[in-house]
Simulated scan of single mutants.
Amino acid sequence: MNVRHLTFRLLQVYVTVVRLGSVSRAAAELHLTQPTVSQQLKRLAEAVGEPLLDTRMKPTFIGTELYHAALESLSRFEDFGGFLQDARQGTRGSFSIGVVTTAKYILPRLLGPFNRQFPGVEVSISVGNRGYILERHRYQQDDLYLFSHPPSGEHTLSSRFIHNPLVLITPPDHWAVKQPPASFAELLHERFLLREPGSATRLVFEEWLRKRNLQLKRVMQVESNEVIRMSVEQGLGLAVLSEHTLEGEHRLGRPALPEFPLSSHWYLVCHDNRRLPYAAANFVRFINDHLAACVKEGYIDKDLAALLGHINKPGNKP
């Protein structure tokens, strides 16, 4: 048998004739003429080199085996067709996302509902400090990124979508809780616990200080939000952290200062010179359509136009 002469159309015609037991009925179902169906059967028999049907349109011994093989092949490709359709709709497949450490507090709120609606999508997550995720972004190691202080540069698209208020926290018995100062300047002599240089929270806080010509007197560097929270609770100092890291935390003081919280946002980031996988594109659309079901309404500040425009560009759209 010369398999190069076999085509899916020949196998489809043959399976239909065997199933219906009639060339005419097969022709009607396939929207072909009877001579065309007969010619297709002849070509298939020549390719196999053996008779496939008897005079009653029943498969021969060899024809029966070909029928089962053809059914299996066509069925597999029907399955593939369904898989391809699901993949193009983003309901199956995979994508990767790089996430700065603080964002681990909000990512599960997005991925949980997304996974329940699209269980066929696999997501791989890389979590690290800002420097680590910036390096992954530089070498395009992930499809999407989640930053609170997005990188800039050519071919980088970023869209804000969630408020990320930065709040001042103190030990629960701190004097500023009982008698809030008139301004932050009265706290400059306190020890402040800060994340490592380059941390987005630290960048925003230091930029805010710089614009007001304020300078902290005492600083302790701590490379973990959890350790900062515990250290503040034990009286080691004050800190400025994302409000998202403090949800459900009632043991810390939050002085009522007019300058706080500081304004910040979470951003979804991708490369505009790289087509997003269908599943990643579907995740962006899901956030755009269902964000209110994932986070509290007061945190929503959605402007995903840049990413949605990239997804819908000719050549990128499923």
Rank of each mutant, 00 (worst) to 15 (best):
residue 98 G to C: 04
residue 27 A to N: 07
residue 123 V to W: 02
residue 52 L to T: 10
residue 207 E to Y: 06
residue 135 E to M: 01
residue 56 R to A: 15
residue 45 A to L: 01
residue 314 P to V: 07
residue 155 H to I: 00
residue 154 E to N: 13
residue 37 V to R: 08
residue 307 L to E: 11
residue 151 P to L: 10
residue 43 R to L: 13
residue 264 S to H: 10
residue 29 E to C: 09
residue 118 F to D: 05
residue 20 L to E: 15
residue 7 T to Y: 00
residue 209 L to S: 09
residue 295 V to K: 01
residue 39 Q to N: 15
residue 177 V to R: 10
residue 81 G to T: 05
residue 230 M to E: 14
residue 280 A to F: 12
residue 41 L to S: 03
residue 150 P to H: 01
residue 189 H to Y: 03
residue 75 S to I: 04
residue 310 H to A: 02
residue 136 R to E: 15
residue 219 V to D: 00
residue 278 Y to I: 00
residue 187 L to Y: 04
residue 18 V to W: 04
residue 30 L to I: 08
residue 288 N to Q: 14
residue 214 L to Q: 04
residue 240 V to N: 10
residue 184 F to Y: 12
residue 124 S to G: 09
residue 107 L to S: 10
residue 155 H to A: 12
residue 55 T to F: 06
residue 307 L to Y: 05
residue 244 H to L: 04
residue 42 K to Q: 11
residue 247 E to G: 00
residue 142 D to M: 11
residue 158 S to G: 11
residue 64 T to A: 11
residue 16 T to Q: 14
residue 86 D to T: 02
residue 164 N to Y: 00
residue 139 Y to L: 12
residue 270 C to P: 03
residue 84 L to R: 13
residue 309 G to M: 10
residue 167 V to H: 03
residue 5 H to N: 15
residue 219 V to P: 00
residue 43 R to K: 12
residue 252 L to I: 02
residue 96 S to I: 03
residue 151 P to E: 11
residue 292 A to P: 00
residue 61 F to E: 14
residue 268 L to I: 08
residue 8 F to S: 14
residue 279 A to G: 08
residue 28 A to F: 04
residue 205 F to I: 07
residue 313 K to Y: 07
residue 15 V to G: 05
residue 317 K to T: 08
residue 315 G to L: 02
residue 159 S to L: 02
residue 54 D to T: 07
residue 259 E to H: 07
